[in-house]
Amino acid sequence: MSYPIRVRAGAVIIESSRILLIEFDDEKGVHYNLPSGGVEHNETIQDAAKREAKEEADVEVEVGPLAFVYEYEPKLNNYKYGDTHSLSLYFECKRYQNSNPQFPANPDPNQTDVKWISIEDFDDIVLYPNIKNHIKNYLKSKSRIDLIQENQLPPVERSVKAK
């Protein structure tokens, strides 16, 4: 039996106590998201985070360690964000010095801006998902989660049992 779940990747880009967010204006009103989206076929999660930063904020980034993981399970949340179960992996990213975020040529539907938001003003915005406190705690602790990829592991060496 297969278990359908959408894997998403996102970029957490923080500089000088400001975070880069994507602004949307739709039926929910003005709100913000981290640059993120679904992982495509034959794409690594880290490559997806890099691509999403480029597509949504027109910024080139270096993908760093995994900062946190977010799961949305529709049934447990009264389907408030739809009926697709998803797992989002957010990476700490650093933008390349010569790459400045800007509104992309082909923005997502209802995307209205790309903004640096001060962490001090974080409580004054609507962020989906509402992980503002998790981001603030991450900034304080900088605890990271290792992403273990099979292609980076040493091969398994089988030992021969002595008789």
Rank of each mutant, 00 (worst) to 15 (best):
K75L: 13
K50S: 09
L127N: 09
V69R: 12
E120H: 13
C93Q: 04
A67V: 02
G64P: 01
D124H: 12
D26R: 07
P74M: 07
P35R: 04
F91H: 07
Q46S: 11
D25G: 01
E73V: 15
D124N: 14
G82R: 08
F103Q: 08
E55Y: 12
S118Y: 12
P104D: 01
Y128W: 04
Q97I: 09
N106T: 14
W116F: 01
E92I: 10
N78K: 12
I135Y: 06
V30L: 13
K132Y: 02
S88I: 00
D124A: 05
V30H: 07
E60C: 11
R18C: 05
P65L: 11
Q102N: 12
D25Q: 13
N110D: 14
L139H: 03
E23C: 06
N98R: 11
K28E: 10
L127D: 03
Y128K: 15
N78M: 10
R18F: 02
E27T: 14
V114F: 13
Y79P: 05
H134T: 13
A48K: 03
N100F: 14
I135T: 05
S99T: 07
S99W: 06
T84N: 11
N78Q: 11
K80H: 13
H31P: 08
P35Y: 05
V114L: 08
V126T: 15
D121R: 11
E55V: 09
V114W: 10
P129A: 03
S88M: 10
E56F: 12
N77W: 10
T44R: 06
P35G: 07
D123E: 15
Q46V: 13
I135N: 02
K94Y: 10
W116E: 08
Y96S: 03
Y81P: 00
G37S: 06
P101F: 01
V61H: 01
I22P: 00
D123T: 14
V69I: 15
K132D: 00
I135S: 02
E43C: 00
Y70E: 05
G29R: 12
E56G: 05
E52L: 15
L34Y: 10
D58V: 02
D83R: 15
V126Q: 11
E56M: 12
R95Y: 01
F103S: 06
L20K: 08
N130I: 08
L127M: 12
E120Y: 14
Y32F: 13
S86I: 04
Y72S: 03
P101N: 08
D121T: 09
F24A: 00
Y128S: 14
Y32S: 01
D121P: 08
K28H: 15
N137G: 11
L76C: 09
D124G: 06
P65C: 06
L139W: 02
F24K: 05
E23F: 04
H134M: 10
